[in-house]
Design a protein around this nucleic acid. Structure first.
Lengths: 356, 356
DNA sequence: GTTAGCACTCAAAGCGCCGGAGTGCTAGCC
DNA sequence: GGCTAGCACTCCGGCGCTTTGAGTGCTAAC
């Protein structure tokens, strides 16, 4: 599915590299196809349009550039962008302001859903692209405490705090009835007994306990086990959490000027399963990743690029943050933003972990 | 701001009414301007195009119809829609399927935010318009219980259950530190002391208690008061909850065929303050309300209509559900949907209340 | 009151034309 | 051998023109 285009550093001599670089920067800035004449006039090359045309023709032969039609300038191909990102791009350093904006948002998050939304929104705003935040299953989630609060006799709110400070909460419908007293006891019992373990382990232990002899006689223990199992099952749903924010950012991009393109793009952003699939594949490596157009099924169809990065501890990544946008985007500006957001989230989680 | 267009039942004779009715139904179905010829062919009138043209000319003079240009058919004005809704429309009866879909979603909601989202989504899906759900401030919200759960030493999750069964939860950051034990005591105290009162009353009482002599000496009571006030303040924020879902439904509507219109519309839906203002004005009457185009500032600019209805008990409405769409919509189908959703929500809340 | 007929209007679609931007190629220059 | 001026070629896009067809308003006759 995800197969990066193969480009090699020594495919191009230094002049061709500079030309490719300039074309991409210029095209990203204007959205127009770049002509030999405008390149010549930009002043960075002491060459006539005719000479630049030769270089450009070579770059086209190698698959880095293409012409929308015969009498137009050149635009980068996805292969061109790939070369740019791998060898030519100089990542911009974030401004104080950008770092503060990200730090602020991350500091504010409390519950996990809130954090996902804030992160997605801030990255969307800063990058002016569509923000995407993804949290895979919580089965590997180690807990610090698990509390149960009475909502109605057979509706219980479960609040789980992870060792990483992340909070998840969910209301559970149950056939059994509970009193406040019982719930307090159950909360204590489960927290003492299972703190530090992952939800997956906890569920397995609870299931095993069902057969335990003690559980046959102890009514409260039975209820504890039943409630615990319900809780774990309810907070680790099959559908992963995927938050997509700032879809309106694409409204102003010239590549989506016509209604049909807009329509297609909005619908594409709705296909969350596809997105989840791709983002999941980004989880393998603990570093910023950029996917361009044809490098995956999803991005190919829509000429999207994805800039994404896992967050959480490198040992157990918690999820992925990133952005989706047209292939034509300022990678040098967006990449460090995504990277910093990932780092900030990871750092926050690590701090909480140590606090404990 | 909200001023319904004035139309009178006896403005039109029965033939004109039938013609207006047919034109609106036909135009809503096709999106096209309706010509005298197509009307004549539809079979409901035993009249030639020429005769119908006379009727149509009259309807135009009275402001119920308009022509996009000289040689086009007629389309309804907002005044025309208003007459249709007030006097001509026969609301469709909901199908079993639609009622079940709504009932199911309403039954599933637990926390208040979840409910808002589910309701907004289901009404958007069924009506194929943009779903809007609005919950005004919770200050009038009477509580059944208030529980506090330890998340970290200075981060507490507060879970409030209303007498109407609605659940709100929020994490509170506090300077004071709390132990599990203390929180259990505080939860009990507040629940026992304040059950049945509104958040507004509770806050006022807590503030008054600050000056109480006992509070000067009792450390735990001090902490209780501080935490209680924080909790009430945190769950009744200034910005009201407004959930807008299904914005993509407008993608397929012909009135938004061109990119500029799409863009404008999406941006309009982002202006939540304006929307809140209008929806708030719908709270006064405990019935379904339909706002058409020029009947409010907001809808005028964008040629929108709003179909909305309060929910909650008639004594204290909790919020508003509704949809936003182009003026050209199937009011006869959408109106009963919105109405039923409002009823279902109200009914659910009432049930919970009685359960108690 | 109804209708057939006719003149009129106007949007939308089709067509041809031209200009401009940009390229590829070739031949000549350093 | 690399660079560049010049030229022929291509193609998009805009402009103006005409045609078509849908629909109306009006008038006169039934």
């Amino acid at each position: 599915m995800v197969s990066r285009l193969e480009v090699h550093d020594d495919d191009l001599d230094s002049r061709a590299r500079e030309v490719l670089r300039e074309i991409i920067i210029e095209h990203v800035a204007t959205g127009e196809a770049i002509s030999s004449r405008s390149l010549s006039k930009c002043g960075r090359f002491q060459l006539s349009p005719a000479s630049l045309r030769n270089v450009m023709a070579d770059l086209e032969d190698l698959g880095y550039l293409q012409q929308p039609h015969t009498s137009a300038g050149r635009i980068p191909t996805d292969r061109g962008y790939r070369f740019f990102i791998d060898y030519l791009m100089k990542s911009r350093v974030l401004t104080q302001r950008e770092r503060e904006a990200i730090d602020d948002e991350v500091a504010h998050g409390n519950e996990i859903e809130e954090v996902l939304h804030l992160a997605s929104r801030v990255i969307s705003r800063l990058s002016d692209q569509v923000g995407v935040v993804f949290m895979p299953t919580l089965l590997q989630f180690a807990i610090r405490s698990m509390d149960f609060v009475l909502v109605a006799e057979n509706r219980i709110m479960c609040v789980i705090v992870g060792t990483n400070g992340v909070v998840v909460n969910k209301i559970i419908e149950t056939r059994l009835q509970f009193t406040r007293d019982e719930l307090e006891k159950i909360s204590r019992y489960i927290t003492v007994e299972f703190a530090g373990l992952t939800l997956d382990t906890i569920r397995r232990r609870l299931v095993r306990m069902t057969e335990d002899e003690r559980a046959q006689h102890d009514r409260l223990l039975q209820k504890t086990i039943a409630l615990g199992i319900d809780a774990v099952n309810d907070v680790t749903p099959v559908e992963h959490e995927l938050v997509v924010e700032g879809a309106t950012s694409i409204l102003t991009k010239p590549e989506f000027a016509d209604a049909a393109a807009l329509r297609k793009t909005f619908l594409a952003l709705q296909e969350k399963e596809k997105l989840v699939e791709i983002l999941n594949s980004c989880l393998t490596e603990d570093a910023l990743q950029i996917l361009i157009g044809s490098e995956s099924d999803y991005t190919q169809v829509h000429n999207f690029s994805i800039v994404a990065r896992p967050y959480g501890t490198s040992a157990s990544p918690l999820g992925i943050v990133g952005i989706i946008g047209p292939m034509r985007m300022e990678y040098a500006r967006v990449a460090p933003l995504v990277d910093y957001l990932g780092l900030a989230l990871s750092r926050k989680i690590e701090e909480k972990e140590q606090q404990q």
